[in-house]
């Protein structure tokens, strides 16, 4: 079921991305409101909304630096090797994952999503290594209010 919904989200990459961007803009346009309430108070709420929606749609792992719009709405954190930059050389001939044979390779899915979006050129983009300090934090908040959120300290 989990895999099916993820697959559905990639199949509807266009819709998903529009939804995603809209949500981001909505968050951003409500900036004064968030400021009024206070980021400390609103942060956990937004994080929890993000977590649940994205878990449902993309099997989100809350890595804290979402790249879904660059990966055809297929989350690379679901790759057993958490590859950020494309498929490994172990993908099976039927496009299934090398490690978990019951799952389609997330990067095969990403390529499908990018093709649907007509932006396969995005696959050029080099994603930096995962910043484990950001784990569990909201990507939406950090994208929308980049300046306001201090990077977690050691």
């Amino acid at each position: 079921m989990r895999f099916q919904l993820k697959t559905w989200s990639v199949s509807h990459a266009r819709l998903m991305r529009r939804f995603y961007i809209l949500f981001e803009q909505l968050l951003f346009s409500l900036f004064p409101l968030w400021r009024l309430i206070g980021f400390k108070r609103i942060g956990p709420l937004i994080t929890s909304v993000e977590k649940n929606i994205k878990k449902f749609l993309f099997d989100c792992q809350m890595c804290g630096h979402c790249v879904l719009d660059k990966t055809g709405m297929s989350c690379p954190m679901n790759c057993p090797k958490q590859l950020q930059n494309g498929p490994c050389g172990g993908v099976r001939i039927d496009s299934m994952c090398e490690v978990d044979g019951s799952m389609r390779c997330v990067w095969v899915e990403a390529w499908r999503g990018l093709s649907l979006l007509g932006t396969t050129a995005d696959s050029d983009h080099i994603n930096p290594p995962v910043d484990h300090l950001l784990h569990g934090r909201s990507s939406w908040l950090s994208i929308a209010f980049h300046q306001e959120l201090p990077r977690p300290q050691k």
């Binding site: 930059n85 494309g86 498929p87 050389g89 172990g90 993908v91 099976r92 001939i93 496009s95 390779c105 990067w107 095969v108 390529w111 499908r112 396969t120 696959s123 050029d124 080099i126």
Partner: peptide, 23 residues
């Protein structure tokens, strides 16, 4: 770097190579 042109997604493989070269 390594490359595997023989497994899917085939059309992505050359771009993946480009990415490795860029890196």
């Amino acid at each position: 770097a390594s490359a595997n042109p023989f497994v899917p997604p085939y059309d992505y493989r050359p771009l993946r190579l480009k990415k490795k070269i860029d890196a």
